[in-house]
């Protein structure tokens, strides 16, 4: 079936099997490989993207379900080479190591701040409950998100 949607501001289309997961449509058919797959149970959030501005796990949707939506992936976050403030915060706070969970974390974190622009540390931690990282122990991820929210004094770090 033909599946069309807007991805990072561009109209995209591909002919795929109905069972095609959105994450595979994005990665394998559109070639946008920044969105990663870390599990098969909607647990890890490595595949997190935005659909119509809200975070979603693209491994738990069919591409068909996203027909006609406005999708943003990690490739759509930086603006002409200038990092998105959340990406910048992750860099400045060392919020990534191997980088595999990072695109999903950034997408989840930007969605979180859209809904709660000034979160506490506890709210950031709860807000990222669906995104797993094995490298950072989350300390610097939480710090990054608080920093991006302009709330770095709550970072809990010295």
């Amino acid at each position: 079936m033909q599946v069309e949607m807007t991805v990072n501001g561009q109209s995209m289309s591909a002919d795929v099997e109905p069972r095609t997961l959105l994450v595979h449509y994005i990665r394998d058919d559109l070639g946008l490989t920044g969105t990663n797959v870390g599990c098969d149970t909607s647990s890890c959030g490595a595949c997190t993207i935005h659909i119509n501005g809200e975070s979603a796990k693209s491994c738990t949707m069919l591409a068909a379900q996203a027909r006609g939506t406005d999708v943003t992936t990690i490739e759509g976050m930086a603006d002409n080479g200038t990092l998105h403030p959340m990406q910048q915060a992750f860099m400045e706070c060392h919020g990534l190591q191997c980088g595999y969970c990072t695109p999903g974390m950034v997408m989840a974190a930007t969605s979180l701040l859209k809904e709660n622009p000034n979160p506490t540390e506890a709210e950031v931690r709860e807000g990222l409950e669906g995104n797993l990282c094995r490298c950072t122990g989350y300390h610097n991820i939480v710090k990054s998100v608080l920093s991006a929210a302009g709330n770095s004094t709550n970072g809990g770090s010295q």
Binding site: G45, I51, E54, A56, M61, E115, G127, E129, G130
Partner: peptide, 9 residues
């Protein structure tokens, strides 16, 4: 329920 991304969908 679940996590925020799950709750969006």
């Amino acid at each position: 329920v679940g996590d925020p991304s799950v709750r969006h969908r």
